[in-house]
Structure formats: C-alpha cells, structure tokens
C-alpha cells in the first residue's frame, strides 16, 4: 500500500511536468500545425535566465518569475522573426525553420555561456522531504504538483473566460472563420507562442531545479517527452495532451520500477516505437480531439 501511494505520488509529480510540457507544444500545434522543435530551447532559456539572475541573492520567486518571462519573451521573438515569414509556405518550411531556431538557440548558449553545465542554486527546502505516515513526500514533488495544478487551472480560466483565450481555442477549430470575424491572425498566433513560452518557462524552472544544472542541450529530453505525450494523447486537443502527459509520467515511473536494468537502456526506443504505432493505427491520438486539417495562410 505504501509503495503504491509512493508510486502514485511520483507518477503525479512527473506527470504534471510532462502535461505542462505537452500543453506548451500543442497550443502552437493546434493553430499552426507546427511541431516547434525549438520548444526545448525555451526550457533551456528559462534555465540560463535563472542562472544569470541567481548572483545577488534575490528571492527565489523573483528568479522563477524572471526565468518564466525570459522564456515567454524568447518564444514570442522567435515567432516574430522566424516563423511569421514562413507561415504561408509549406508545413515543411515551418518545421525546418523550427529546427533551425532550435540549433540557433542551442549554439548561442554554447557560444555565449559555455558548453559545460552550469550549476544553479536551488532553494534547499526543495531537497527536504516530509515523513508522513511512513510515506516520504519530497518537497520538490509537492511543489511541482501544486505549481502545475495552479498553472493548469489558470490556463483553463484564461482559455474559457477571456476573449483572447476563446479566440485561441476557436483558432484551432477554424482559423479562417476567426479572421472573418475580425480577429487578427498575428495577434492570436503571437498569444499562442507567448503561452507556449510561459509554459516552457514554468517547466524549465521545475526541471532545472530538479536537475540542479543547466546545459545547452538540457531542452532535448523535455522536447522528446512533450512530443510523445502530444502524439499519444492526440494532437488536436488540449485535454488530450494533458492526459498524454500524465500517462507518460506514470509509464516512465512504472517502467523505472519494473523493467530490468539492461532493458531499461532501450526504454526510449520502446516509447518511440509506441509513438509510431499510435501515429499509424490511431493518428488522432488516444483522446480524440476535433479534426481540423486547415492551416493558416
């Protein structure tokens, strides 16, 4: 029973991070049909922003907010500079652009900071744990669950209550119609990138403080995770990606527990095989969203 509860807690904690990762990727995909390969680098940006701000001994909250803002700003900048000009071209042009943006950001970190890992100062309280009825609750895990829950709720309210949020969801349904109603495409897309960047920022802060260091390639793993969660959960709905994230978190923790060590090395190969199988057999994902093939010109 205790092991089971422990398992649930770990799965919940990892799953919430994965869900946010997936959500940040799918919010842009839903509108532009673009898999933003540069998404992982936004997480990296958040990490380096934290690293850059940590010197003077500012409060942790300030570092976190700064990191989130940095990721959001960079995300919007990439949209303005790189993606907007190719938006009306082929899907492949956008995909390659995102690949180029990813390479650009990653190598900028190499160039401007260092190829080597930079340690980030983590609030020591995060490494503590609370004993509770024989259960070890890591403060880290608790914070993660609470923060992710709060972000999900806030995002839900934004998308349901504000006009811009409603427009964002409408854009995933039928972008052409949204523009006919006078909503500027540029504004909606920029908003999507801003939200994606902010989510990447939150994920970045949680991820980096878990690892304790930031490197130029720190975003690669989260990108792959988000990609899997999105494909498995369904690329046409926000709910699907959240489900996909929690599912993947549970699966990862489960495999870690039950798989023998020598097979564990191939874990990612198994998971990506699942991705291909889902794409082939159930392209709409496990959670069916609304089909929309239209792209924005």
């Amino acid at each position: 029973m205790q092991t089971f509860l422990q398992f649930i807690l770990n799965a919940l904690s990892l799953g919430s991070i994965y869900a946010l990762m997936a959500l940040g990727l799918v919010i842009v995909f839903g509108i532009l049909r673009l898999v933003n390969f540069a998404y992982g680098e936004l997480i990296m940006v958040a990490g380096y922003a934290w690293f850059a701000l940590q010197g003077p001994g500012w409060p942790w909250v300030l570092l976190a907010v700064g990191a989130v803002i940095a990721a959001g700003v960079v995300s919007v900048l990439t949209e303005r500079v790189a993606f907007r000009p190719v938006r009306s071209d082929s899907l492949n042009a956008m995909l390659v652009t995102s690949f180029a943006v990813s390479t650009l950001l990653q190598n900028s970190a190499l160039l401007l900071v260092s190829p080597r890992a930079r340690a980030v100062e983590v609030p020591s309280v995060l490494n503590n744990s609370i004993e509770f009825g024989g259960l070890r609750l890591g403060v880290n895990d608790l914070v993660t669950i609470v923060v992710c829950g709060a972000v999900l709720l806030a995002l839900g309210a934004l998308l349901r209550r504000t006009t811009l949020g409603i427009a964002l969801r409408a854009a995933a349904d039928d972008f052409r119609m949204l523009r006919l109603l006078g909503v500027r495409a540029d504004k909606v897309i920029a908003t999507a990138f801003a939200i994606s960047g902010v989510l990447a920022g939150v994920v970045g802060v949680l991820w980096i403080t878990r690892i304790g260091a930031v490197t130029p390639t720190v975003g690669a793993a989260p990108l792959l995770i988000a990609l899997i969660a999105v494909v498995v959960g369904g690329m046409n709905g926000l709910a699907g990606s959240i489900v996909g994230g929690y599912l993947l978190g549970t699966l990862t923790v489960g495999l870690q527990l039950f798989l023998p060590q020598e097979v564990l090395a191939f874990r990612d190969a198994f998971i990506f095989a699942v991705v291909i199988i889902v794409l082939v057999l159930r392209p709409q994902g496990l959670v069916k969203g609304r089909y929309s093939a239209e792209r924005v010109a």
């Binding site: 990612d268 990506f272 291909i276």
Partner: peptide, 14 residues
C-alpha cells in the same frame, strides 16, 4: 505530411 514528419523523427530517435 505532418504525421509522417513526426514519425520519421521518432524513427531517428529509435
């Protein structure tokens, strides 16, 4: 088109 691109990426990872 887009699903094939993602699947090919997954295949590279594998």
């Amino acid at each position: 088109e887009s699903a094939a691109a993602i699947a090919s990426f997954a295949m590279l990872v594998i």
